[in-house]
């Protein structure tokens, strides 16, 4: 009784309280504003309109495909970063995480310069196989992988670093090959981390806009994902559609955060 408990301290100095309230308002008001401006009566018809359904379908399939690619390629990258003594490993980690801080539209320009028709790889692919990536659904997935895979890599590497390596050592002494050890011991141990990374990666892929619109363009049914549909709607002066799409994305984002709350937000409340 005599000692104040740190967690229950309600005496907040005004110098902290006021900026904190402003900060919360900046985060909450835009979302509240969307809810207030939402055309509730038109909501069902907009949500079920051909344009929105097409974009939704494309977003769900591309984000899922991008997450699968990120799982297949990203988990091994995380393993390399966490378990090996590669020379230049920190450089590799830096390179791999650049897309986390790079403006996505710059990523899109970079992808276009490499995989575009006159790009280093794209030019060769076009000449040799007659395959051209930009403005295809594959380009959407590639853009999403570029932007979202680092989230998975960072999450999985973190999980790998915090697991007890002695189990792997034991497996090795019992004669398991390193591949078997990875499959039977390491992967099950970090499964929750992989799952969380995959969900985060999927959410980031679902929200991807800048790299996609720059590298893959915007064509309904082929490359126009939900965020691009929202951007096109606002550019075309069709704000109601943009609001409804924004609400949809917010609902998905909040659902993901709620699903991951124990892992990412903690349970201090």
């Amino acid at each position: 009784m005599s000692r104040p408990r740190r967690t229950d301290d309600l005496r907040v100095p005004a110098g902290l309280l006021i900026p904190a309230l402003v900060g919360v308002a900046i985060l909450v008001l835009p979302m509240l504003g969307l809810v207030l401006r939402a055309p509730w009566s038109d909501l069902p018809s907009i949500l079920t309109s051909e344009a929105v359904l097409t974009a939704l379908r494309l977003s769900l399939t591309t984000a899922t495909a991008a997450t699968l690619v990120a799982l297949v390629c990203g988990v091994p990258v995380a393993w390399l970063l966490a378990r090996t003594a590669l020379p230049g490993r920190s450089l590799l980690r830096g390179v791999v995480t650049v897309p986390l801080v790079l403006p996505p539209v710059i990523g899109g320009v970079a992808l276009l310069m490499v995989f575009g028709r006159r790009g280093v790889i794209g030019g060769w692919m076009d000449e040799t196989f007659g395959v051209s990536l930009p403005f295809t659904t594959t380009a959407v997935v590639l853009a999403q992988v570029f932007v979202a895979m680092p989230f998975l890599i960072v999450a999985v590497e973190g999980a790998l670093r915090t697991t007890d390596r002695r189990y792997e050592d034991v497996a090795a002494t019992l004669g398991a090959t390193s591949w078997t050890t990875f499959r039977r011991v390491t992967l099950p141990a970090v499964a929750p981390g992989v799952l969380a990374g995959a969900v985060l990666c999927w959410a980031r892929a679902l929200g991807e806009f800048g790299a996609t619109v720059t590298f893959a363009g915007s064509l309904p049914g082929t490359t126009r994902t939900l965020p691009i549909e929202a951007y096109v709607a606002i550019g075309a002066g069709d704000s109601e559609v943009a609001i409804v799409l924004s609400l949809l994305m917010i609902v998905v984002s909040v659902a993901i955060l709620v699903g991951l709350r124990d892992r990412w937000i903690g349970s201090s409340a």
Binding site: R118, G217, L219, G235
Partner: peptide, 20 residues
């Protein structure tokens, strides 16, 4: 049969200039 619909004319012009 367009392959992309651009939000403004400059974007379309850039794609042609780039050869994309």
């Amino acid at each position: 049969a367009p392959d992309t619909l651009t939000t403004d004319v400059k974007e379309a012009a850039s794609l042609v200039a780039l050869g994309e």
